[in-house]
């Protein structure tokens, strides 16, 4: 059995969690003060994910960049391949919030979408 120490990121309380594991199986989560802490603890040691936010370059606008995000959380170990893929992307204004900027980023099955309107001109 091994113990993994985490800090819960669900809310500002930041509970110190201890996750007990046997191989790949979670035995117990302690240190949490609510149910969300246990869910986070289990997910964080088996399938950690994050929403990734970044920017991509824009042509044809006063703005130089458009902010973007993954439409859902992606596996933590794909964060760098995700931002690397975005370095190659350049889009043409106008762009509207929610527009798909890149499909299936880094083979995650998740799309990159715009988070701001960027008008042309």
């Amino acid at each position: 059995m091994r113990e993994i120490n985490l800090i819960c990121i669900n809310c500002p309380l930041g509970c110190p969690l201890v996750v007990e594991m046997e191989g790949k199986e979670v035995l117990k989560v302690t240190g949490n003060t609510c149910k969300r802490g246990e869910i986070y603890g289990r997910k964080e040691v088996t399938d950690p994910t994050r929403i990734v936010t970044s920017t991509v370059r824009v042509k044809g606008s006063k703005e130089k960049t458009v902010p973007v995000k993954t439409s859902k959380d992606i596996p933590k170990d794909k964060i760098f391949s995700c931002v690397t893929a975005l370095k190659e992307v350049e889009v043409e204004a106008p762009i509207y919030m929610g527009d798909i900027i890149l499909e299936n980023v880094a083979d995650t099955g998740i799309n990159i979408i715009a988070t701001k309107n960027v008008y042309s001109g």
Partner: peptide
């Protein structure tokens, strides 16, 4: 700063 930011921005 907020604890969640220490975890997500530094520890990660």
């Amino acid at each position: 700063g907020l604890k969640r930011n220490i975890v997500q921005c530094l520890d990660d």
